[in-house]
Design a protein around this nucleic acid. Structure first.
Lengths: 139, 139
DNA sequence: ATGACTGCAAAGACTTTGCATCTTT
DNA sequence: AAAGATGCAAAGTCTTTGCAGTCAT
């Protein structure tokens, strides 16, 4: 039988932190966020719990953005937008690739498809404005 | 004016290595591949050239797979499949999300979309067989 | 009591970078 | 000769892990 799982205040806090934000946080973000409330929290614990939650399907990875893995507490299918400039990650509800594309790929290529990620890249509004300013006031 | 770019044997070799395979290599793979032919090649040079090529649009990043960034010399739009078990990356030509989805996202969310990545995850044929064997012969 | 969870710090893995040297132009 | 490219090794980041102590059941 599988290993028993016990309650822990830190674990609960880590999950709440992720579920309570829409910024698709990194491990470091969660750590910084919880450190004031849990002064003895360690970064290792954050990593261990993120792995635990992902393996148990409570959160999913959005992928690695600018060197840091980002997580999402929303596990229902939806796409993301990543700002190439500041690394902000946004949800794009309603944006999905063609219907049942997983099955299409599975059949067409004979692969055991388990899921997919659709991620858009570009500049968020804020960074787009900054870039514009640079254009208007070249060095 | 921009900085001049000069020819270099190593740079050419790095690009050829990527263009000459469909395995979507990592920096380490390129390094190991070229080391016998260029005994004085350094890993730093591989990284510097990969960055150079990506910034100049000669290659693109497929994303980080099992901790290593993977590259693709095919920069025309196409999707990928990543094996969650062995990390193999496959091209999926012909698989694309809905027509002009970039523009749809751009309009619907007011974002400056520059592109997207559509990646499927699952088990490749080889790993799927292995998993099956495990099922058939449980511990 | 048992064994899961944690803090701490060391180790690991991947990537970047400073500087002297070599190469291209 | 000027400036870009490289080798080497050190440093930088992010993440994982071993171990002893703590906490939940």
């Amino acid at each position: 039988m599988g290993r028993a799982v016990r309650y822990s205040k830190k674990r609960e806090a880590v999950l709440s932190a992720i579920q309570g934000t829409d910024c698709h946080p990194s491990a470091e973000w969660v750590y910084q966020r919880l450190k004031p409330l849990h002064p003895d929290l360690s970064l290792g614990t954050v990593y261990r719990n993120l792995t635990f939650f992902r393996e148990n399907g409570l959160i999913q990875s959005v992928g690695v953005v600018q060197g840091q893995e980002r997580f999402d507490a929303v596990v229902s299918p939806h796409s993301h937008f990543v700002c190439n400039c500041c690394g902000t990650v946004l949800d794009l509800p309603g944006i999905e690739p063609g219907t049942d594309l997983d099955r299409t790929v599975s059949r067409q290529y004979g692969l055991a498809v388990q899921g997919h990620k659709l991620t858009f890249y570009g500049l968020c509004s804020s960074c787009a404005n900054t870039q514009q300013n640079f254009k208007e006031e070249p060095l």
